[in-house]
């Protein structure tokens, strides 16, 4: 549990990487839809150079484990697995929704946060979060996928909302949430937030072997069997 924490996220249209040690943080963030695979390793080389450190000084890998675009989530997990295997360091998979929520909590820790990512097909990924002085950013209930008009929400008076799921379905959210005190529908998860969320878990010894760091897709029914299609 020493050295630098390398963090990466490719779960949405953005690609970001960060290096964190104590108060020092270096980050690269790009909106690069379809170019995340091309950019992620070169961006890590860039932050390593900026921080003036070498790979052997990395002590753990944090990664946005989803939910988000299936391919993007897998890309991040695969890169994290490959690096962690090579360096023999643990992985800390972090929710991309929690990373978004942390952005709002950083601005106002008294709000209840709805973090939501557009899941296409008329649905969103969503999770509600609150800040707790003892445990930090805490999930209330479960992360889930569903239509914006019916995903379960926490009970709250004062809302902050963040993520592309907000801007995709304003008409479904507004009857449920009203006018939030903070709203940003154009924000993507960032590796620096993922690193912040990961570091305390790392310190508590919650890093895991890379083969156990797996994507959280939330949407798990992705195809119909022949029986379900009525062809057998």
């Amino acid at each position: 549990m020493s050295g630098w924490l390398l963090s990466l996220d490719t779960s949405t249209e953005a690609v970001s990487v960060a290096l964190l040690r104590a108060a020092e943080c270096y980050e690269r963030f790009e909106l690069a839809p379809k170019r995340q695979a091309q950019r992620v390793l070169p961006m890590i080389d860039e932050v390593l150079a900026e921080a003036g450190i070498v790979k052997s000084m990395l002590g753990a890998i944090a990664v946005g484990r989803g939910p988000g675009a299936f391919t993007g989530v897998r890309l991040g997990i695969s890169v994290a697995q490959g690096i962690a295997l090579g360096l023999d360091v643990p992985v800390l998979p972090i929710s991309s929704l929690a990373a978004l929520a942390a952005d709002v909590i950083d601005i106002d820790p008294t709000l209840t946060v709805l973090a939501t990512i557009d899941a296409r097909m008329g649905e969103v990924y969503a999770g509600c979060y609150r800040f707790d002085a003892q445990h930090g950013v805490q999930l209330i209930g479960d992360e889930c996928v569903g239509p914006a008009h019916s995903v379960p929400l926490a009970r709250a008076e004062r809302w902050g909302v963040i993520g592309t799921g907000w801007s995709a379905y304003p008409e479904f959210w507004s009857p449920r949430i009203g006018a939030p005190e903070f709203a940003d529908g154009a924000r993507f998860p960032r590796a620096s937030r993922i690193a912040e969320l990961a570091v305390s878990r790392w310190q508590r010894g919650h890093g895991i072997a890379p083969e156990f760091a797996l994507p959280a897709y939330l949407r798990d029914k992705v195809a119909l069997t022949e029986v379900e299609r009525g062809v057998r």
């Binding site: 695979a37 390793l41 890590i44 790979k55 299936f70 391919t71 897998r74 890309l75 695969s78 890169v79 994290a80 697995q81 490959g82 690096i83 962690a84 295997l85 090579g86 360096l87």
Partner: peptide, 20 residues
């Protein structure tokens, strides 16, 4: 298959990167 290829390519490329 693009998604399937990407899993192997990303893991392999990242592993090679980490070991120079």
């Amino acid at each position: 298959l693009v998604g399937a290829l990407l899993v192997g390519a990303a893991t392999a490329r990242a592993l090679a990167w980490s070991l120079d």
